[in-house]
Design a protein around this nucleic acid. Structure first.
Lengths: 184, 184
DNA sequence: TGGCTACTTTGATATATGTCAAAAAAAGTG
DNA sequence: CACTTTTTTTGACATATATCAAAGTAGCCA
């Protein structure tokens, strides 16, 4: 697991050692919540196994905005950084194994190791490159185009995630997505 | 100008000094481009005066995704970080005065000063907190709700930016926005 | 194997928003 | 002030998608 973080952005031995000391393993069953709206999110998680989704509750609807798989970082970046209550939820789609780093521990690591500051910056950079790509993809006018774009860029999502979540990710209803699929 | 960056995230004297040496002033007339799609963006800019917009060309339409005003950082974060060609354009809505930092200079500053690494991280964090807020706001189902949300959270945009740009920012046509405004 | 639950598809109808076209209003410019 | 250019509003019509409702289909567990 530290191997993966190390590949993400190289850390010196002492930084790795300090990081290892504060990591805590978290097991999450399918359906359970990692982040809950209206609560401040105090951890960043690294996904070792499993699959999760982030969603907002808006107008009484669940809007899925993100799917996370193995070897990626997960948190309410918004809440974790701003220290304000999260506006979104993050839920396990499958049983998950995660590694958690607490907010204070991370700040201490940032202060102590330049390598960690760099890791933090790169983690953030990756995250919003993803946001950016998602934002662009969501602006195809027709739902069919957005679906086809998802099929070509992230087909693994379609195989592991129920249709209803994908529909809300694409900004359409499950019924519309179902109709699109029969036509494609 | 360095004052503003310093308020953003404090820098030690030597970091400020090194930063000052690599900053270059840029003047931009209304309508001119700061970032052009298909070209790699090699600078981060700080807005001293003026107002800009970022937009994508999608399906032959311009999709405005961002407005920037005084005292904020501007760049194609996507292109600047990934070193790939930008997929978006950034254009001056008014005459602008900016300060530019080159990619290599910034990497050198990151390597030399922990303060700068921190500034970079915070700049990125702010940027995607903004992306996140925008993403949430854009998911109100009705265009009227999105417009009212913009009115209450960023009324200054409505006063400085032409209606057509705001419409594309809200994901609707100019005609629809015009009709919404007469009803509100 | 049966039966329960979760997930997906199909059908009929309503509507918010887009599209195309033109007029009106506002803002620059000599 | 006249004149051009830019920006905003108004009108008529088309359509992609939502909504509500029901029927299939697949997965899972005793």
């Amino acid at each position: 697991m530290l191997d993966h973080i190390n590949q993400f952005s190289p850390l010196c031995q002492t930084a790795l050692h300090d990081l290892a000391k504060v990591l805590r393993q978290v097991q999450l069953a399918k359906g359970e919540f990692l982040v809950t709206e209206a609560k401040v999110c105090n951890h960043v998680y690294f996904v070792e196994r499993g699959c999760l989704r982030g969603f907002y509750n808006l107008d009484g609807k669940e809007i899925t905005y993100w799917f996370g798989f193995e070897d990626s970082f997960v948190t309410s970046f918004f809440s974790f950084i701003s220290r304000k209550p999260a506006v979104e939820n993050i839920q396990a789609i499958e049983d998950c194994t995660l590694w958690a780093i607490g907010y204070n521990d991370l700040q201490t690591l940032y202060a102590r190791h330049k390598d960690m500051e760099r890791l933090g910056r790169i983690m953030h950079e990756r995250y919003y490159v993803m946001l950016e790509e998602r934002f662009v993809a969501n602006h195809f006018k027709e739902a069919r185009e957005r679906y086809e774009n998802l099929m070509s860029t992230a087909p693994h999502i379609l195989q592991r995630v129920p249709l209803g979540y994908i529909a809300s990710y694409l900004g359409i209803t499950q019924e519309t997505l179902s109709r699109i699929r029969t036509k494609v």
